[in-house]
Amino acid sequence: MSLSYGIGSIYTRHVGYLDDDFVKARRLLERHRAPVERLEVGASRADAAAYAGMSEKFQSAPPSTDSLCVRFLGDCRLNGQPMQTAPGCYQVLTAEVAQRIQAEQLLVIENLETFRQLESYPWVVDAIGGGETQVMVLYRGDRDRSVGEMSDFIARRSEPTAVFFDFDPAGLGMAAKVPRMSHLLVPDRGWLEMGLEGARAVSLYAASVGQWQSFLDGCADERIASAWSLMKSRRAGMAQEGMRDAPIRQCY
Protein backbone atom coordinates (compact mmCIF):
# COMPACT_ATOMS: atom_id res chain seq x y z
CA MET A 1 0.00 0.00 0.00
CA SER A 2 2.81 2.46 0.86
CA LEU A 3 4.46 1.94 -2.55
CA SER A 4 1.39 3.28 -4.33
CA TYR A 5 1.97 6.58 -2.48
CA GLY A 6 5.64 6.69 -3.43
CA ILE A 7 6.79 5.65 0.03
CA GLY A 8 9.47 2.98 0.30
CA SER A 9 11.57 1.07 -2.23
CA ILE A 10 11.61 -2.59 -3.27
CA TYR A 11 14.80 -4.52 -2.50
CA THR A 12 14.53 -8.07 -3.90
CA ARG A 13 11.62 -9.50 -1.86
CA HIS A 14 11.51 -6.76 0.77
CA VAL A 15 10.38 -3.14 1.04
CA GLY A 16 12.84 -0.71 2.60
CA TYR A 17 12.24 2.73 4.10
CA LEU A 18 14.63 5.68 4.36
CA ASP A 19 14.32 8.74 6.61
CA ASP A 20 12.64 10.67 3.79
CA ASP A 21 9.98 7.96 3.53
CA PHE A 22 8.95 8.52 7.14
CA VAL A 23 8.64 12.26 6.47
CA LYS A 24 6.40 11.49 3.47
CA ALA A 25 4.30 9.09 5.55
CA ARG A 26 3.79 11.69 8.27
CA ARG A 27 2.68 14.30 5.73
CA LEU A 28 0.30 11.80 4.14
CA LEU A 29 -1.33 11.00 7.49
CA GLU A 30 -1.65 14.67 8.38
CA ARG A 31 -3.17 15.44 4.97
CA HIS A 32 -5.85 12.82 5.53
CA ARG A 33 -6.43 13.91 9.15
CA ALA A 34 -5.21 10.67 10.65
CA PRO A 35 -3.06 10.41 13.83
CA VAL A 36 0.71 10.21 13.41
CA GLU A 37 1.14 8.51 16.81
CA ARG A 38 -0.76 5.65 18.40
CA LEU A 39 -3.60 6.77 20.61
CA GLU A 40 -3.01 6.42 24.33
CA VAL A 41 -4.04 3.17 25.97
CA GLY A 42 -7.68 3.46 27.00
CA ALA A 43 -8.45 6.24 24.51
CA SER A 44 -12.20 6.66 24.01
CA ARG A 45 -14.11 6.60 20.75
CA ALA A 46 -14.58 10.34 21.16
CA ASP A 47 -10.78 10.68 21.24
CA ALA A 48 -10.49 8.67 18.02
CA ALA A 49 -13.34 10.55 16.35
CA ALA A 50 -11.26 13.75 16.53
CA TYR A 51 -9.38 12.36 13.51
CA ALA A 52 -11.74 12.57 10.54
CA GLY A 53 -9.59 10.28 8.45
CA MET A 54 -10.24 7.11 10.46
CA SER A 55 -13.00 5.21 12.23
CA GLU A 56 -13.80 6.18 15.80
CA LYS A 57 -13.38 2.47 16.65
CA PHE A 58 -9.73 2.31 15.51
CA GLN A 59 -7.29 2.00 18.45
CA SER A 60 -9.99 3.10 20.90
CA ALA A 61 -11.17 1.16 23.93
CA PRO A 62 -14.57 -0.58 23.77
CA PRO A 63 -17.36 1.53 25.34
CA SER A 64 -17.81 -1.09 28.07
CA THR A 65 -14.22 -0.60 29.32
CA ASP A 66 -13.96 0.62 32.92
CA SER A 67 -17.60 -0.22 33.65
CA LEU A 68 -18.45 -1.81 37.00
CA CYS A 69 -21.98 -3.06 37.71
CA VAL A 70 -22.95 -2.19 41.28
CA ARG A 71 -25.98 -1.83 43.50
CA PHE A 72 -26.44 -0.95 47.15
CA LEU A 73 -28.00 -2.18 50.37
CA GLY A 74 -28.16 0.04 53.43
CA ASP A 75 -26.89 3.60 53.56
CA CYS A 76 -23.90 3.56 51.18
CA ARG A 77 -22.78 7.07 50.24
CA LEU A 78 -20.85 8.92 47.55
CA ASN A 79 -19.43 12.28 48.63
CA GLY A 80 -21.96 12.29 51.47
CA GLN A 81 -24.94 11.60 49.20
CA PRO A 82 -26.93 8.35 49.68
CA MET A 83 -26.65 5.78 46.91
CA GLN A 84 -29.87 3.86 46.29
CA THR A 85 -30.82 1.16 43.81
CA ALA A 86 -34.42 0.24 42.97
CA PRO A 87 -35.31 -3.49 43.08
CA GLY A 88 -34.38 -5.23 39.84
CA CYS A 89 -31.97 -2.45 38.82
CA TYR A 90 -28.28 -1.73 39.03
CA GLN A 91 -25.89 1.10 38.21
CA VAL A 92 -22.80 1.17 36.00
CA LEU A 93 -19.91 3.19 37.45
CA THR A 94 -16.31 3.78 36.51
CA ALA A 95 -13.75 2.33 38.90
CA GLU A 96 -12.70 5.85 39.93
CA VAL A 97 -16.25 6.77 40.99
CA ALA A 98 -16.92 3.38 42.62
CA GLN A 99 -13.69 3.69 44.59
CA ARG A 100 -15.16 6.75 46.36
CA ILE A 101 -18.27 4.89 47.57
CA GLN A 102 -18.45 4.62 51.37
CA ALA A 103 -19.37 1.06 52.42
CA GLU A 104 -18.85 -1.32 55.34
CA GLN A 105 -19.15 -4.58 53.40
CA LEU A 106 -18.75 -5.83 49.83
CA LEU A 107 -20.87 -8.61 48.34
CA VAL A 108 -19.74 -10.25 45.09
CA ILE A 109 -22.37 -12.15 43.08
CA GLU A 110 -21.52 -14.46 40.20
CA ASN A 111 -24.60 -14.36 37.97
CA LEU A 112 -26.32 -11.29 36.54
CA GLU A 113 -29.92 -12.43 37.13
CA THR A 114 -29.24 -13.11 40.80
CA PHE A 115 -27.39 -9.80 41.11
CA ARG A 116 -30.38 -7.90 39.69
CA GLN A 117 -32.96 -9.82 41.71
CA LEU A 118 -31.10 -9.88 45.01
CA GLU A 119 -34.22 -8.88 46.97
CA SER A 120 -35.71 -12.23 45.94
CA TYR A 121 -32.99 -13.96 48.01
CA PRO A 122 -33.91 -12.83 51.54
CA TRP A 123 -31.57 -15.35 53.17
CA VAL A 124 -28.61 -13.67 51.44
CA VAL A 125 -29.72 -10.17 52.44
CA ASP A 126 -30.28 -11.37 56.02
CA ALA A 127 -26.83 -13.01 56.20
CA ILE A 128 -25.02 -9.75 55.37
CA GLY A 129 -26.96 -7.41 57.63
CA GLY A 130 -30.52 -7.25 56.35
CA GLY A 131 -30.10 -3.77 54.88
CA GLU A 132 -28.80 -2.30 58.15
CA THR A 133 -25.18 -2.58 57.00
CA GLN A 134 -23.68 -0.44 54.22
CA VAL A 135 -23.21 -3.09 51.52
CA MET A 136 -21.88 -2.40 48.03
CA VAL A 137 -23.06 -5.30 45.87
CA LEU A 138 -20.83 -6.15 42.90
CA TYR A 139 -21.51 -8.21 39.79
CA ARG A 140 -18.43 -10.36 39.16
CA GLY A 141 -18.56 -9.81 35.38
CA ASP A 142 -18.71 -11.74 32.11
CA ARG A 143 -17.50 -11.48 28.51
CA ASP A 144 -19.01 -8.01 28.15
CA ARG A 145 -18.15 -6.72 31.63
CA SER A 146 -14.53 -7.34 32.57
CA VAL A 147 -13.97 -9.85 35.36
CA GLY A 148 -10.41 -8.56 35.62
CA GLU A 149 -11.49 -4.96 36.19
CA MET A 150 -13.85 -6.04 38.96
CA SER A 151 -11.15 -8.21 40.55
CA ASP A 152 -8.71 -5.28 40.52
CA PHE A 153 -11.36 -3.04 42.06
CA ILE A 154 -12.04 -5.48 44.91
CA ALA A 155 -8.32 -5.86 45.56
CA ARG A 156 -7.97 -2.07 45.97
CA ARG A 157 -10.78 -1.87 48.55
CA SER A 158 -10.37 -2.75 52.23
CA GLU A 159 -13.83 -3.91 53.36
CA PRO A 160 -14.62 -7.53 54.25
CA THR A 161 -16.02 -9.30 51.19
CA ALA A 162 -18.94 -11.71 51.17
CA VAL A 163 -19.24 -14.05 48.17
CA PHE A 164 -22.33 -15.66 46.65
CA PHE A 165 -21.46 -17.94 43.73
CA ASP A 166 -22.81 -21.11 42.18
CA PHE A 167 -22.41 -24.11 44.46
CA ASP A 168 -20.13 -26.00 42.08
CA PRO A 169 -16.35 -26.54 41.89
CA ALA A 170 -15.77 -23.42 39.80
CA GLY A 171 -17.87 -21.30 42.14
CA LEU A 172 -16.02 -22.54 45.21
CA GLY A 173 -12.65 -22.10 43.54
CA MET A 174 -13.41 -18.53 42.50
CA ALA A 175 -14.78 -17.74 45.96
CA ALA A 176 -11.58 -18.97 47.58
CA LYS A 177 -9.59 -16.43 45.54
CA VAL A 178 -11.64 -13.37 46.55
CA PRO A 179 -9.63 -11.09 48.89
CA ARG A 180 -10.75 -10.70 52.50
CA MET A 181 -13.59 -13.22 52.25
CA SER A 182 -15.85 -12.72 55.27
CA HIS A 183 -18.85 -14.88 54.30
CA LEU A 184 -19.23 -17.83 51.96
CA LEU A 185 -22.96 -17.60 51.33
CA VAL A 186 -24.46 -21.06 51.02
CA PRO A 187 -27.98 -22.12 52.11
CA ASP A 188 -28.78 -24.21 55.14
CA ARG A 189 -26.96 -27.53 54.77
CA GLY A 190 -30.04 -29.72 55.15
CA TRP A 191 -31.96 -27.77 52.53
CA LEU A 192 -28.95 -27.76 50.22
CA GLU A 193 -28.41 -31.52 50.45
CA MET A 194 -32.00 -32.17 49.37
CA GLY A 195 -31.39 -30.09 46.25
CA LEU A 196 -28.20 -31.88 45.17
CA GLU A 197 -30.06 -34.36 43.00
CA GLY A 198 -30.87 -34.84 39.34
CA ALA A 199 -29.04 -34.62 36.05
CA ARG A 200 -28.52 -30.84 36.21
CA ALA A 201 -26.88 -31.06 39.64
CA VAL A 202 -24.53 -33.80 38.43
CA SER A 203 -23.61 -31.92 35.25
CA LEU A 204 -22.82 -28.74 37.17
CA TYR A 205 -20.30 -30.63 39.26
CA ALA A 206 -18.81 -32.53 36.33
CA ALA A 207 -18.36 -29.41 34.20
CA SER A 208 -15.61 -27.90 36.35
CA VAL A 209 -14.37 -30.54 38.80
CA GLY A 210 -11.43 -31.45 36.56
CA GLN A 211 -10.17 -27.87 36.56
CA TRP A 212 -10.67 -27.12 40.25
CA GLN A 213 -10.35 -30.39 42.21
CA SER A 214 -6.64 -30.20 43.02
CA PHE A 215 -6.94 -26.56 44.08
CA LEU A 216 -9.94 -27.25 46.32
CA ASP A 217 -8.35 -30.36 47.82
CA GLY A 218 -5.47 -28.17 48.98
CA CYS A 219 -7.49 -25.16 50.14
CA ALA A 220 -6.83 -24.39 53.82
CA ASP A 221 -9.93 -22.21 54.37
CA GLU A 222 -12.23 -24.26 56.59
CA ARG A 223 -15.39 -22.78 55.04
CA ILE A 224 -14.29 -23.74 51.54
CA ALA A 225 -13.12 -27.15 52.76
CA SER A 226 -16.46 -27.88 54.46
CA ALA A 227 -18.49 -26.90 51.40
CA TRP A 228 -16.13 -28.83 49.12
CA SER A 229 -16.44 -31.93 51.30
CA LEU A 230 -20.24 -31.90 50.93
CA MET A 231 -20.09 -31.19 47.22
CA LYS A 232 -17.52 -33.89 46.54
CA SER A 233 -19.41 -36.48 48.59
CA ARG A 234 -22.53 -35.87 46.52
CA ARG A 235 -20.71 -35.23 43.22
CA ALA A 236 -23.35 -32.62 42.50
CA GLY A 237 -23.82 -28.85 42.51
CA MET A 238 -26.50 -26.16 42.44
CA ALA A 239 -26.78 -22.93 40.44
CA GLN A 240 -27.36 -19.66 42.27
CA GLU A 241 -30.79 -19.36 40.72
CA GLY A 242 -31.80 -22.62 42.38
CA MET A 243 -31.07 -21.16 45.83
CA ARG A 244 -33.63 -18.37 45.67
CA ASP A 245 -36.15 -20.00 47.98
CA ALA A 246 -33.70 -21.30 50.59
CA PRO A 247 -34.61 -20.72 54.25
CA ILE A 248 -33.18 -17.65 55.96
CA ARG A 249 -30.20 -19.37 57.50
CA GLN A 250 -26.50 -19.19 56.71
CA CYS A 251 -24.47 -22.40 56.51
CA TYR A 252 -20.87 -21.16 56.18
Rank of each mutant, 00 (worst) to 15 (best):
S64Q: 13
D66W: 03
S67C: 15
S67N: 08
L68K: 01
C69K: 12
V70T: 08
F72T: 13
L73Q: 11
L73R: 10
D75T: 01
C76K: 06
C76V: 10
R77W: 03
L78R: 12
L78D: 08
N79S: 13
P82T: 08
M83N: 02
G88R: 03
C89Q: 14
C89F: 13
Y90D: 11
Y90T: 00
V92R: 14
V92L: 12
V92Q: 07
L93I: 01
A95R: 14
E96A: 15
V97P: 00
I101W: 00
A103I: 00
E104T: 09
E104M: 00
E104L: 02
L107K: 11
I109M: 04
E110D: 10
N111Y: 04
N111E: 09
N111C: 09
L112T: 06
E113Q: 13
E113A: 15
R116L: 15
Q117P: 00
Q117E: 10
L118I: 12
E119L: 13
S120C: 06
S120V: 00
Y121T: 02
Y121F: 15
P122I: 07
W123R: 07
D126L: 03
A127P: 08
A127S: 15
G129F: 07
G131D: 08
E132A: 14
E132G: 04
E132F: 01
T133D: 04
T133A: 09
V135T: 15
M136R: 05
M136A: 12
V137Q: 08
L138F: 02
Y139L: 05
R140F: 03
R140E: 03
R140L: 05
D142P: 05
D142T: 09
V147I: 15
V147K: 13
G148E: 13
G148Y: 02
E149R: 13
S151N: 11
I154P: 00
A155N: 09
R156M: 12
R157L: 06
R157K: 11
S158R: 13
P160A: 10
P160F: 10
T161Q: 06
T161I: 09
T161M: 03
A162V: 03
V163Y: 05
V163T: 14
F165M: 14
D166P: 08
D168L: 04
G171L: 04
G171M: 07
M174H: 06
M174A: 07
A176M: 05
A176V: 01
V178K: 03
V178G: 06
P179H: 07
P179C: 08
S182N: 05
H183V: 06
H183Q: 14
L184I: 10
L184C: 06
V186F: 02
V186I: 15
